[in-house]
Amino acid sequence: MNYELNLSHLQELEAESIHIIREVAAEFENPVMLYSIGKDSSVMVRLAEKAFAPGKVPFPLMHIDSKWKFREMIEFRDRYAKEHGWNLIVESNMEAFNAGVGPFTHGSKVHTDLMKTKALLDALNKYKFDAAFGGARRDEEKSRAKERIFSFRDQFNQWDPKNQRPELWDIYNSRVHKGESIRVFPLSNWTELDIWQYIRLENIPIVPLYFAKERPCVEIDGNLIMADDDRLPKELVPKIHNRMVRFRTLGCWPLTGAVESNATTIEEIVEEMMTTTKSERTTRVIDFDQEASMEQKKREGYF
């Protein structure tokens, strides 16, 4: 009897990710999977479901809600978690929110620092998680290209790119002292195309914002921003026009630029991606705050 003993690249990546996810469940006391509701998170969540089938995933899902996410994201999050039996934790920096912090009034840097980074760090401390999964990929951004799969964080949740633990074969060092933690990136070796391909093959549900539709948009500093709720500054309201757009990444609605597109299927999205001239993070306003800004944010504890 002849056996097919080759794996395709996607099957190999899937096996690698499942191995990483199980390793964390086995070696840490209190892991959590961070969920951004984006396409990468959706793949990561499916991989976790696969890793423990036919059982339940032994750790919770946590969403850091900046309170400025697209409404469709929140609806999708709640529905998915319910339908798939996930224990969902939602945390926000309510102090800053109640003080009125937002991207329009405080700018993207202050908003991100308080509503995303600080909210995340507070939540990690609150639950004393010793490992947190993130859906980041190495092909997304230059500083991520150098990060380990098990990325050590000190007691202040800081990443030190010059002092990373050597990481060999598939043997991961999960030892930490009290207060320290590991960020784990099971999708490290996936590319954007791999993610789309996997979503297509596995029929993984994703937020409809990824598909093109007529949406009310306004142009701010060269970015097409969708007016998702009534917090858009009043002076911008008259400038709203309906445009056929979709989103390549999802984040806070005032900070995530839409792209004009007619792609309504995954095949069309991939086709657009293959012929497009912009890489996916260009629609993220925060990457352009300052030079080497993602690395800076990572050092401070943001993903």
């Binding site: 230059k142 991520r144 290209a145 150098k146 010059k162 490290s188 070796n189």
Partner: peptide, 21 residues
């Protein structure tokens, strides 16, 4: 294109492993 980290750029060398796809 490859030297992603700020510290490395200043030193003009790649100091760690970078993965490319």
């Amino acid at each position: 294109l490859l030297d992603g980290l700020k510290a490395e750029r200043e030193e003009g060398i790649t100091i760690d492993v970078a993965y490319r796809y």
